[in-house]
Write a protein that binds this DNA or RNA. Structure first.
Lengths: 140, 140
DNA sequence: CTATATGCAAATCATTTGCAACCAG
DNA sequence: CTGGTTGCAAATGATTTGCATATAG
């Protein structure tokens, strides 16, 4: 919670209970919550915080670069509080989005695109979307 | 246009003027049009075709696998009529989405993930999102 | 104090839906 | 014929906006 405040301060934002609540929700709700999930989580403990405010806070956090928006195949945004470079696994069965960190892959891709330029396009970021299914069950 | 009809027939859909119009729009509007762009394009020549119908036709085409939905960072869906395996360049300046075909890369990725399994996840599809900017201008 | 943030409710915007009338096969 | 399609207009659902009030620094 101290780190939450420090995070806010470090990007020049005032500390408000609403913003702290959003940060807490982002920590508790791993796995890329939607705004809706964040809202209902927060409203359990802070029933007075307004929906509009939560959207505003989320937008602000995205603008300040302390969280990211993740696009899903259905038109709902999800928020990602993990900022280390990572890719995503999209489970086509459950709709879950799982972080995937793989430095070896990052190096491979970086080298590849240094060698093979994409003509006329300067790459800022490389994101891999792995679509498939989580086989929790070994046999079907 | 014959091929449009054949495409429809091949997936078991009836041929209707509305569906032909949507296919034509998809051909003319390269570069991943949004539903809105498709609608306004169609309504120039076919002012009577209903918005709801166009959405239904697009959904149907996606369900039949003859086009794809592409997710964007803003909550608007785009449609992609190119079905060959390809990745996307996202221009962070213009919002454009450009197709990127690179078989060498596909082989590289395929090999990589055959070697290095992602535990508990069976990969169906690998999509690369290259975010950056189109440098039309050489110097800036 | 004073600018910034919040609450609230209305507005927006893309997309979906329900259903009667229509038309392709 | 007959079930799959369409048009229409109303409904939905996520997100946004405007503005008066509250509050962090």
């Amino acid at each position: 919670m101290y780190s939450d405040k420090n995070t806010l301060i470090s990007v020049g934002l005032k500390i408000t209970p609403q913003r702290i609540a959003v940060m807490e929700a982002l920590h508790k709700l791993k796995s890329h919550p939607s705004a809706e999930m964040i809202i209902s989580f927060i409203q359990k403990s802070h029933p007075h915080i307004a929906v509009g405010t939560i959207y505003k806070v989320l937008d602000l956090f995205v603008a300040k670069g302390i969280i990211r928006k993740v696009m899903t195949d259905k038109g709902v945004m999800r928020y990602d509080s993990v900022l280390d470079k990572h890719h995503h696994l999209y489970c086509s069965e459950s709709g879950e989005i799982i972080d995937y960190v793989d430095e070896e892959l990052d190096v491979l891709l970086k080298d590849y695109f240094e060698r093979k330029k994409v003509t006329g396009f300067s790459i800022e970021e490389i994101n891999l979307h792995l679509i498939g299914s989580y086989n929790k069950k070994k046999k079907e």
